[in-house]
Design a protein around this nucleic acid. Structure first.
Length: 389
DNA sequence: CCGAGGATGAGCGTACCT
DNA sequence: AGGTACGCTCATCCTCGG
């Protein structure tokens, strides 16, 4: 009851504000502006290819950007969500996050699996560097042993987006039957059936006529996590947590600029932490985390993060379950206690934005995805608390 | 045996892109 | 015209401790 009231107040504030903030994000113009097609939302075209402001090892394009004055830190912040959200969602997110132009990146340019995501951050974009070793960018580089059974008529060299649920064993069986009862190579119709299923479920060839879904440790590897990062919980839970997480190499590339700026480490406010993709990225970059205040609703995810933290970190980890309980007052107290946050990082829930959701793809006002407004509230609260320091 | 909790399998449209 | 998408729900079965 109390939460609901609070939420309405927050929404009211935001909506009022969004009316005032009419200005579009500045910086490098990205393609043509279509005329308003009756809707009040402005278009947010996705770049093609989806490579963000720059990629590792391409010095051909040196993009510069000018951040809106309001967007300039402290703190630095880093926000993430699915790129293919319903129309108008990214325009709204951008408007709330100080009119910063989103950086859209498909992680297939950095690893062996696609992951189309938008990132809004106020980090510098010059002198980025990638994590080493560079991750494999094709299926065969990542998993050489799959070459053995890969048929010549399967042209895939990269995987599709790693999602939260996996195919059934029955499907493996059906495909095996279909292939066994046809020649080699199979007729086009069978090829199409098999390829459609393989693409839909990210299947790989593990035996003669036999496809299977990836295993949790393979997903961990593709996403840039240490081996067995999510070990110790049910398999279904692992897939769900991994499917919801960052691609570590991609995020680390963006965060790499922090390394020289904070030789003594950083204080991090981590929202919607999940299994700790941001923390793993900072750790792999060699950026020390003095303090992480982590907000994560899932008990399983909190346990995974705590397990990793205790094994690898010396700093302080404070875990909070619910973003709604992180009030502006508590934020101010944290800011005083730690001397401010250097980075606020997080991706808010995508389930009401994601295309796979048949039931509640309600957009940014959906039950979970509306928690984005708390991300905005909290960044803004940190900003003003640090302004008073 | 019983029940809780986890795993499995199937079905579920659509918006927005190239 | 075709392809992709950090998902949800429900029924059913399995597993385990008591």
């Amino acid at each position: 009851m109390h939460h609901r009231l609070q939420e309405i107040v927050i929404m009211g504030t935001c909506l009022t504000m969004s009316k005032k903030k009419r200005k579009r994000y500045g910086g490098a113009a990205q393609g043509n502006r279509r005329p308003l097609d009756g809707s009040h939302e402005e278009p947010m075209p996705l770049p093609n290819p989806m490579v963000g402001f720059n990629l590792p090892n391409d010095r051909l394009r040196s993009v510069t950007r000018r951040l809106p004055q309001q967007a300039i830190g402290p703190p630095f912040f880093y926000y993430e969500n699915v790129a293919l959200a319903p129309k108008g969602v990214w325009a709204t997110i951008s408007r709330f996050l100080y009119d910063i132009e989103p950086e859209f990146v498909d992680s297939k340019h950095l690893c062996a699996a696609a992951r189309k995501r938008g990132y809004i951050h106020n980090l510098p974009i010059e002198n980025r560097f990638p994590l080493l070793p560079l991750p494999p960018k094709t299926i065969f580089e990542a998993f050489p042993h799959y070459k053995k059974w890969w048929p010549s008529w399967d042209p895939r060299r990269q995987l599709n987006c790693l999602q939260t649920s996996m195919s059934s064993a029955k499907l493996t069986e059906r495909i095996q039957c279909a292939l066994a009862s046809s020649g080699n190579p199979p007729p086009k119709s069978v090829q199409k059936y098999v390829m459609d299923e393989c693409r839909k479920w990210n299947l790989v060839w593990v035996g003669k006529n036999k496809v299977a879904h990836l295993e949790p440790d393979e997903v961990e590897y593709l996403l840039g996590f240490p081996r067995d990062h999510t070990r110790g919980v049910g398999k279904t839970e692992r897939f769900k947590s991994l499917g919801n997480s960052f691609q570590v190499d991609t995020v680390a590339y963006h965060l790499s600029v922090l390394k020289d700026m904070y030789p003594n480490g950083v204080n991090v406010l981590s929202l919607f932490t999940g299994i700790g993709g941001g923390e793993v990225a900072l750790h792999r970059l060699g950026i020390h985390m003095r303090t992480v205040v982590s907000v994560e609703i899932g008990e399983v995810n909190r346990r995974i993060l705590r397990g990793w933290w205790d094994q690898t970190q010396t700093g302080t980890l404070i875990e909070i379950a619910d973003v709604k309980s992180l009030t502006d007052d508590r934020i101010a107290t944290f800011v005083r206690r730690f001397g401010g946050f250097d980075l606020v990082i997080g991706g808010s829930p995508c389930n009401n934005l994601a295309g796979s959701n048949r039931h509640h793809r309600d957009g940014l006002e959906g039950e979970q995805s509306a928690l984005f407004y708390h991300y905005f509230r909290i960044v803004d609260a940190v900003k003003s608390a640090m302004g008073r320091m």
